[in-house]
Amino acid sequence: MVNAIVDAARGLLATKSVDELTVDAIAKAAGVSRTAFYFYFPTKQAVVAALLDELWDQFGGTYGWLDTTGVDRAALLEHHRLVAGVWRGHLSVLACTTGPSLDYPPLIEWADRARGRFVDGLAAKILRDRADGVAPEGVDARALAQMVFDLRDARMRVLATVGEAEIEQGLADLTEGVLRLLYGAVG
């Protein structure tokens, strides 16, 4: 039953935003009563939280760049391509992790964990690269990593809605911007 409800929500989110999604619509699509829905999930946001949990490993699989040292443009561009793929495939679910829809504690917790995982990894990379003399000193590594996260995810939300040609240029621009933030002028 849980899988049917989660699958129904996933299917509905292919054409609706989280704000347009209703418990009644999910229950109907899952072939269950509203009462049965509430037996398994307290809210529609709880179903969305279950969908987000499914994406956790997909995002983790995009973070290979964080383990590199130095300016690795190709690895960063690949990271951005992989993250864009997750965003493009799951925009309606991921959109609820930002903005006014982010009002349900499990969604807030997921968004905080996702942000923390990336920020921790990038801050460690920045510190390694500074110790190696590759990245300049300056802004606190964690604060800089948080800025990169915010920039990246804001761009991913936009790039998830554009055509293929625009995506490639957008990913190249994002990669260049992040490299400049982290390393200054990069050749």
Rank of each mutant, 00 (worst) to 15 (best):
M1Y: 09
N3L: 09
D7L: 10
D7P: 03
A9H: 02
A9V: 03
G11H: 10
L12M: 06
A14G: 15
T15A: 13
K16E: 10
K16M: 14
S17E: 05
D19F: 11
D19L: 09
E20Q: 13
T22G: 10
A27G: 03
K28P: 00
A29L: 05
A30G: 10
A30S: 10
V32E: 09
R34L: 12
R34Y: 13
A36T: 15
F37D: 04
F37I: 09
F37R: 07
Y38E: 04
Y38T: 09
F39Q: 15
Y40K: 08
P42L: 08
T43H: 13
K44Y: 12
Q45A: 13
V48H: 02
L52T: 10
L52E: 08
D53C: 08
D57K: 13
D57G: 11
D57I: 09
F59K: 01
G60T: 03
L66W: 04
D67G: 11
T69K: 09
R73I: 09
A74R: 12
A75H: 06
A75M: 03
L76Y: 02
L76K: 04
H80Y: 07
R81W: 08
R81T: 07
L82D: 12
R88M: 07
V93D: 00
L94Q: 01
L94V: 07
A95Q: 06
A95W: 02
T98R: 14
G99T: 03
P100V: 15
S101R: 13
L102C: 05
L102Q: 06
Y104A: 05
Y104R: 05
Y104F: 15
P105L: 12
I108E: 10
I108K: 11
W110R: 12
R113E: 14
R113V: 08
R115I: 04
G116T: 14
G116V: 07
R117P: 00
F118I: 05
F118S: 02
V119G: 05
L122C: 00
A124D: 07
R128A: 02
A131T: 12
D132Q: 13
V134S: 07
A135M: 08
A135Q: 05
P136I: 06
P136G: 01
P136N: 00
E137A: 14
G138E: 04
V139N: 01
D140G: 03
D140M: 03
A141G: 00
A143M: 13
Q146E: 15
Q146D: 15
M147W: 03
M147D: 06
V148G: 01
D150G: 04
A154G: 13
R155T: 08
M156S: 06
R157I: 08
A160E: 00
A160S: 12
A160H: 00
T161D: 11
T161C: 07
G163E: 14
E168D: 14
G170P: 06
D173C: 04
E176L: 09
V178N: 03
L179P: 06
R180D: 05
G184C: 08
A185F: 11
